[in-house]
Structures are given as C-alpha cells and as structure tokens.
Computed example of a mutant assay.
Amino acid sequence: MAGVASSNRQRSKLAPYLMILPALAYLGVFYVIPFVSLFRTSLSTMGGSIYLPELTFGWEFSNYGDALSQYREQILRSFGYALTATVLCLLLAFPLAYVIAFKAGRYKNLLLGLVILPFFVTFLIRTLAWKTILADDGWVVHTLGTVGLLPSEGRLLSTGWAVIGGLTYNWIIFMILPLYVSLEKIDARLLEASRDLYGTNRRMFGKVIVPLAMPGILAGSMLVFIPAVGDFINADYLGSTQTRMIGNVIQKQFLVVKDYPVAAALSFVLMALILVGVLIYTRALGTEDLV
C-alpha cells in the first residue's frame, strides 16, 4: 500500500509539468526557434546578390548601430503616433465603455455587439475604407473645409493625422473591451456611497471610478500601444513617404531591399524599446489587480 501511495504522489507531482508540455513545445517551435534565428540573422553580414542572398554569421553588433542611426526618425515617429493613438483610444473608449457598463440596461449586449461588429471585417478592408473616407474629394474634407477647420487646399489623406486616425480606429476595440470588463465589475453601491458622502460627480470619477478601472486602462493601453508601434498597414495606405513608420522600414528591408541583418536588428531594437516602455508603464501604474 505504501508503494502505491508513493507512486500516486509522484504522479501528482508530475501531472502539472506534463500538462504544460504541449504549450512549451508550441512556444519552442513557433517562438523560441524563430527568435534565436532572427537574433542570429541580426548579427550576420549580407552577401551574394539580391536574388541569391547569403548570410554569414559574425557577431556584427554594428548592425544595431547602423539601424539606430539610419532610422531614428522612423522609430521616434512610430512611438509618437502609437502614443497619440493610445491616448485618443482611451479618451474615446472610456465614455462608451462607461455607458455600456452602467447606463445601457437591457441593451448592453446589443451595444457590445454593435461595437464588435465592424471588426469582423478584415483589417485591410477597414483601412482602405478610411482611405476612401479621407480622400481629397470626400465628404469629410469638404465638410471641414466648409466650416473653416481645413484650408481650401488642405487635405487629410497622406498626413500624419490620417495615420493616427487609422491606428485609433483599427485598435480601439482593444481599449473598449478591457475598460468595459473593469467598469462592469464596479459595485454600483460604491457609487451610491460616494454620493451619500456628498461627493461630486467629478470627485466620484477621480476617486472611485478611475482607480477601480485602472486594470482596464493598463491592459487596454498595452493592447493598443504595442501593435500600433509596429503597424505598417495604416502608414502605407493612409500616409506618405513623410509619415513612414518603423514597420514600413522593416517590411521593405525584408521583402524589397532584402537586407536581412538590418531588418532583424531593427526588429530587435523595436522589441527592446517596447519592452522597456511597457515595464516602466506597468511599474508606474501597478499590475496587482490585473489577475
């Protein structure tokens, strides 16, 4: 009996490790191996021709210096666009999530469905739709020109604001849903208690709602900012050569120029900068309530 009990205890100890083996295998094949391969590429030198490129590994850390010096402007622009889009997403999504969580009543599911519905359309088609909407002969430009918000020869398409608008629209769903989940968890009795204590709506918002919604703000900000930094579709279709982001540079280096070491180095630089930014942001706001 003792041997059976000991065998059962050993099996119970091994069970958690056996359960995570498929996930570890998946990460190893589809993340770790490509990650190592990309890192090795970033430290290689390029040879051969554009049709038959040859990579020679040689610890070429100068690729990182070249990438930073040549494309600093695109890197800074990408972070600026992504940060602006994240702030706009937060400003637009918070009121909508609040209304759905507290004011929608029986129409809550309907409103959530209407919010999610446009995102069943592919990313590319939605971006092309905005290209049509913001066209020089479109109604948006005409209306803004009529009310004096746009010069007579002004335009929206192929500008930085068009790219930021595309980023905001395409990623706002990832701000709305985390915010809604956080706000929906707030006990309405806390809001009633703040009113009973003669708290104004502004104080209630700043002292009760925002702190309790902070997990959603943090999660939504990261879900918007991280993909927005590396986005290249919006800059490609809604911008111009003056609004290129680092994603456009990486795509061109990989697929057109075929300078794989520089493209790989830029990818690692981007990942490192995003990681540092996320760590600083999460440390400033805290992550205890995210689980």
Score class of each variant (00 low, 15 high):
residue 2 A to V: 14
residue 4 V to L: 12
residue 7 S to D: 08
residue 9 R to F: 12
residue 11 R to I: 07
residue 11 R to L: 12
residue 14 L to R: 02
residue 14 L to V: 01
residue 14 L to E: 05
residue 14 L to M: 08
residue 15 A to K: 10
residue 16 P to M: 11
residue 16 P to N: 12
residue 21 L to I: 07
residue 22 P to W: 04
residue 23 A to H: 09
residue 28 G to N: 03
residue 28 G to I: 06
residue 29 V to H: 09
residue 32 V to H: 06
residue 33 I to R: 04
residue 34 P to F: 05
residue 36 V to S: 02
residue 38 L to P: 02
residue 39 F to I: 03
residue 42 S to F: 07
residue 42 S to E: 07
residue 43 L to K: 08
residue 46 M to G: 10
residue 47 G to F: 04
residue 48 G to S: 06
residue 51 Y to P: 00
residue 55 L to V: 03
residue 56 T to L: 09
residue 58 G to N: 15
residue 58 G to V: 09
residue 59 W to H: 10
residue 61 F to P: 08
residue 63 N to Q: 10
residue 63 N to R: 03
residue 64 Y to P: 01
residue 67 A to K: 01
residue 71 Y to G: 00
residue 74 Q to D: 07
residue 83 L to V: 09
residue 88 L to M: 13
residue 91 L to S: 08
residue 92 L to H: 12
residue 94 F to E: 01
residue 101 A to I: 05
residue 106 R to T: 15
residue 109 N to E: 14
residue 110 L to F: 15
residue 113 G to K: 12
residue 113 G to V: 04
residue 121 V to I: 14
residue 131 K to M: 14
residue 133 I to E: 01
residue 139 W to V: 10
residue 139 W to L: 11
residue 140 V to M: 09
residue 140 V to T: 02
residue 142 H to P: 01
residue 147 V to L: 08
residue 148 G to F: 02
residue 149 L to W: 06
residue 153 E to N: 15
residue 154 G to K: 00
residue 159 T to N: 00
residue 161 W to I: 12
residue 166 G to W: 06
residue 170 N to H: 06
residue 173 I to F: 08
residue 175 M to V: 06
residue 176 I to Q: 04
residue 178 P to Q: 08
residue 182 S to I: 05
residue 187 D to E: 12
residue 190 L to A: 03
residue 190 L to Q: 02
residue 195 R to S: 12
residue 204 M to N: 06
residue 205 F to W: 10
residue 213 A to K: 00
residue 214 M to Q: 07
residue 215 P to M: 02
residue 215 P to D: 00
residue 216 G to V: 09
residue 217 I to G: 04
residue 220 G to V: 05
residue 227 P to I: 04
residue 235 A to C: 09
residue 238 L to K: 04
residue 250 I to F: 09
residue 251 Q to E: 08
residue 255 L to A: 15
residue 258 K to N: 03
residue 263 A to I: 05
residue 264 A to P: 07
residue 267 S to L: 08
residue 270 L to F: 00
residue 271 M to F: 14
residue 272 A to S: 14
residue 282 T to H: 14
residue 283 R to V: 00
residue 284 A to K: 13
residue 286 G to P: 10
residue 286 G to W: 15
residue 289 D to A: 01
